[in-house]
Design a protein around this nucleic acid. Structure first.
Length: 382
DNA sequence: TCTGGGGTCCTAGGACCC
DNA sequence: TCTGGGGTCCTAGGACCC
């Protein structure tokens, strides 16, 4: 309860002022839109960017998921995170019904990052502070002392939208609000090519009818806990005191208490520091072949070490590996070394020592098949 | 019907130190 | 004979995001 008291003080402060205008820009079906714009023959067709659906046997049994489906493909019931084999089946079904077959494309992250950088450049011409929240999301500051600050901000957003469309032939959705939380939720309300403005006085009315799932950070698990307590809409959430929410969800409940009222003092972060570098891979077929797993693992380590070498970091101290079994049970083992290292031989040796127990009876007594392996480094030092 | 790959942040328990 | 309490580091697991 002492903790709750301390946090409660924050709510009355609202130190960052009442005149902030924050924008959130979210690209529409980003990966798929870029592919469509880059290849005119794809125009107007259903497109899915993600894993290869045909691998293994050419029967659409490929492993993995959909990264992005364009709006045409969404009409088939295909969406992000859907398993690629199900997406493939939906495409086949549509084809039998006389509809167009889906075009499946691999993820070309280098290209998307290139476009992302270009969009950042466009926004930077209009805003002093720009935060790249991900490859397809940006926050930027449009606060000003002008009397018509909101009108000005609106005009800038429309111009940015226009410039992005002119330069890359793709659309985005923008939200304008008094803080990051409201800007982000607003941006998601009228996709694609949307623009939603929520001024200070409109915040609570805007939030109330929305599902709690719209709040960033509320995933399936949290939504279920809330649902069991009769909380479906943000309106319902607002009825609970922060003591209630703390009891229900711990520290995160306190965060939710403020979010439900549209309170968010968080600052834009221009340069987020990297905390880890890692890679993982799912095998096309589950395996317990130690030689094969060792080869793939060695390659993963090399790739991670290469990225480390190309990074701003000079050394690291913690190595962590991941093993996921065929039943999706996932184990991690980490080791923090006595000293920082920057040597690939030591790295590989230490990583291998963490993996080895899973390949024999020590940590895998029943020789369970392995689905995925991964390796990452943490405690990075510049 | 299965469930990628890149991450961040939080929690809880244990070790260890003063 | 009865074992406090604060602080930090480490590990494993889990929720969440794009």
């Amino acid at each position: 309860m002492i903790y709750v008291h301390v946090v409660a003080e924050r709510s009355t402060k609202n130190a960052m002022g009442n005149n902030r205008i924050i924008a959130h820009l979210d690209m529409d079906a980003f990966f798929a839109s870029i592919e469509e714009a880059d290849s005119p023959i794809f125009k107007g067709k259903p497109i899915v960017v993600g894993s290869d659906p045909h691998s293994v046997d050419g029967q659409g049994k490929g492993r993995g998921v959909v990264s992005t489906a364009n709006y045409k493909a969404r009409e088939y019931g295909i969406h992000s995170a859907l398993s690629i084999s199900v997406a493939w089946q939906l495409s086949q079904k549509a084809k039998q019904e006389g509809k167009e077959e889906v075009i499946f494309l691999p993820v070309d992250m280098g290209r998307y990052q290139q476009v992302s950088l270009g969009i950042y450049g466009i926004i930077k011409k209009y805003a002093d502070i720009v935060e790249s929240a991900s490859v397809d999301e940006f926050y930027f500051n449009l606060s000003s002392e002008e009397n018509n600050a909101w009108k000005l901000a609106e005009k800038i957003c429309l111009e940015i939208k226009k410039n992005i469309k002119a330069e890359y032939k793709i659309t985005c959705s923008v939200g304008l609000g008094p803080n990051k939380l409201i800007a982000k939720i607003a941006a998601g309300q009228k996709k694609p090519d949307g623009f939603v403005i929520v001024r200070q006085g409109e915040v609570e009315g805007f939030l109330e009818p929305l599902s709690v799932r719209e709040l960033p950070g509320v995933g399936p698990k949290t939504a279920e806990i809330l649902g069991k307590n009769g909380i479906e809409k943000i309106r319902d959430l607002k009825k609970f005191s922060y003591e209630d929410l703390y009891d229900l969800l711990g520290k995160y409940g306190i965060e939710l208490y403020y979010k439900s009222k549209g309170i968010d003092d968080s600052e834009l972060v221009e340069d987020r520091e990297v905390k880890s570098i890692g890679e993982q891979i799912t095998f096309e077929k589950n395996t317990i072949d130690a030689v094969y797993i060792g080869d793939v693992f060695s390659k993963l380590c090399s790739d991670v070490f290469l990225r480390f070498k190309e990074s701003e970091f000079k050394s690291f101290k913690t190595i962590a590996i991941t093993v996921r079994f065929s039943n999706f049970e996932t184990k991690t083992t980490a080791k923090t070394l006595k000293e920082y290292i920057n040597n690939d031989k030591i790295f590989k040796l230490e990583a291998l020592k963490l993996l080895l127990p899973y390949l024999d009876k020590r940590k895998n007594p029943n020789n369970k098949l392995i689905r995925l392996i991964g390796v990452k480094i943490e405690k990075l030092q510049t």
